[in-house]
């Protein structure tokens, strides 16, 4: 991120921290004091979470004030800026990576055999990122074959090592 983008991000982080730390303090305050157990009043469960809440509140406030002083409150969120951010190749790659990874870890695993999920994920990842629409057919076929070979190898080796060598009950 560029310095001025970070200053803007700092403002948002600062505000999030303020809300978060206030919630933390409130939750800590509501934690039981366990008087009926006769416990020592300074050993109550809420003590340290409350203390951390106060510290984070101070740090969040400093961050917010500093960001505003540096002009971070001119967020400049416009439709064009947002669209441009999403069209940057780096951000596109980031979004595709996120979708693939979360789809694999959260949805594919558990709903199909582990080896199959792993194979599909690896293949899709390599095939999508190495896809070159400009290349001729032979290059593309070769790329896809290579992706498939790596996928089969990864799925096979990882599954075998964890199931048979480490005796892990796979998800």
């Amino acid at each position: 991120m560029k310095p001025d983008t970070i200053t803007k991000a700092d403002l948002i982080t600062g505000l999030v921290l303020l809300v978060f730390s206030l919630t933390l303090i409130e939750e800590a305050w509501r934690m039981p004091r366990l008087e009926q157990l006769g416990v020592h009043p300074s050993s109550v469960p809420g003590l340290v979470p409350g203390m951390l809440g106060v510290i984070l509140l101070i740090l969040g406030a400093v961050l917010t004030v500093r960001s505003v002083r540096r002009g971070g409150h001119h967020l400049g969120i416009t439709r064009e800026n947002t669209a441009r951010t999403f069209r940057q190749p780096g951000n596109l790659r980031l979004i595709v990576t996120l979708v693939l990874c979360i789809g694999y870890a959260a949805f594919m695993i558990g709903n199909m055999p582990y080896w199959l999920a792993t194979g599909i994920f690896t293949f899709l990842f390599i095939a999508l990122f190495e896809w070159n629409p400009g290349a001729d057919r032979r290059t593309r076929v070769r790329g896809l074959t290579l992706a498939a070979v790596i996928a089969v190898l990864v799925a096979g080796v990882v599954t075998w090592v964890f199931a048979n060598l480490f005796l892990v009950t796979l998800p």
Binding site: T97, C101, A105, A106, I109, T122, V158, F162, V168, P171
Partner: peptide, 25 residues
Amino acid sequence: ERLMPIVFVLCVIGSYAIAERPFDV
């Protein structure tokens, strides 16, 4: 492009394997 999917596969199975809890993933 070829290395990162393998790293992520290992991240998933690695965080699962120690306690065998899907929660850890």
